[in-house]
Design a protein around this nucleic acid. Structure first.
Lengths: 218, 218
DNA sequence: TTTTATTTTTAAGTAAGCTTAAATATTTTA
DNA sequence: TAAAATATTTAAGCTTACTTAAAAATAAAA
């Protein structure tokens, strides 16, 4: 299974989970930074390998086999994140970047060794759940996007979902991290801007940032 | 720099160091498990990129740039070996296999973090020297192949050079490991067979194994 | 030294993973 | 609902990293 295939399957899986459901080739292409034509092409090839269902102009749907592959890669990614986070003093963004590469070159054996070393953690440093060796996520996710949360309420940060370096730098600088607490002090004009309180810091976020922050009721 | 290029350059470097010097495409091809034609092809391409000097029917010679690339990859390989060896209970062969993959997906930053964590080690678990971040090997190598060592003498094991799983299993089972001591008790018919004493074990090795064991005078 | 065996090189071809440009279908909006 | 905008697909083409088969050169053996 090549890097391109693993990334394609992973992109569909992640998109399916977290975006406004749009798994058509164009949207996957955008996530992967490839052309629409390349994505359509790949979709056809993966359909032939029973990793996804493809019908012209329709959404791409992973088969069980495709989901299994995605979860296997995601497991390795998140284990690497947890491991690097524990071992080395590196930014969340740098850790993410390393994991993005290492995930494709990690045997199931090594993944298991890392998992055991960490005490089989259920979450990575962003708060994302780590699938077990069978590709099952045993924790249930009750988190909501901060852009959908309610003014006046206090939440626990459940996940930080982003590939963007600036987002993580911003979070680090402002105490926005996994398991910290925040309160929504004010929402402006249809949730386009959100004012939050983290520790003693009052911060105003726009939607580009709030949509990446997932929280749970306190 | 692709995996194929890194492995090609690495194969020339390693071969140049340790084999009866033969860096012609055919020999490199054999090491990499590709066809002679593919190796010739690659040699021409890498010559165009100033990584090696290529002249028809002649030995391939790495340029300074090529050596630098090789040492950068080798550094990452050996750091991973040292790191995995320290962290996890895995066989030397499994560790080698993981490192063979991870070496190509490791940033200089991560390599430096691993090196620092280990206290900037000078040798990996096979006894191979680890180049520093500038691609310099600061230790001088005075080891010789066991197949060239002398009967009756006692040596310290300096390096175990092999990709072969059975070789490492054999070594592990018989106490043949980095920094252990061995004595050559008998040599047979022009060094084709060598009898050694390791701890309380007497072992007879054929040349396929002795050529992979490097030793230093005691 | 000449023949034979081995290597190296060239040539032609393949698969994966991309690209751009044009054709076709779908979606939006007026 | 028809026109305009957008997205998807098809088609043609490129690069990398291989392959096999044949030609050419080198190395070994008689």
């Amino acid at each position: 299974m090549s890097v391109a295939v693993e990334n394609f399957v992973k992109a569909i899986y992640n998109n399916d989970k977290h975006d406004i459901k749009d798994t058509k080739p164009g949207n996957i292409a955008k996530k992967l930074g490839i052309s629409n034509a390349a994505a359509t092409d790949m979709a056809k090839k993966l359909a032939a390998r029973d990793l996804l269902n493809y019908e012209k102009y329709q959404e791409l749907q992973l088969t069980d086999k495709g989901v299994k592959m995605a979860l296997n890669v995601i497991r390795k990614h998140r284990l690497w994140e947890a491991f690097l986070f524990k071992m080395f003093d590196m930014s969340l963004h740098d850790i993410h970047r390393e994991a993005e590469l290492l995930e494709h070159q990690t045997s199931d054996l090594l993944a298991e060794k890392i998992s055991a070393y960490l005490g089989h953690p259920k979450f990575d440093p962003h708060g994302d759940p780590i699938p077990n060796a069978n590709g099952e996520i045993t924790t249930k996710d009750t988190s909501i996007s901060l852009s959908e949360a309610m003014e006046g309420k206090t939440y626990t940060i459940a996940r930080l979902m982003s590939d963007d370096k600036e987002f993580f730098e911003f979070c680090t600088q402002n105490g926005i991290k996994y398991r910290n607490t925040l309160t929504i002090t004010k929402q402006f004009s249809g949730n386009k801007m959100t004012q939050i309180l983290v520790g003693t810091n009052t911060i105003v976020l726009n939607e580009d940032f709030t949509k990446n922050i997932y929280v749970e009721e306190h």
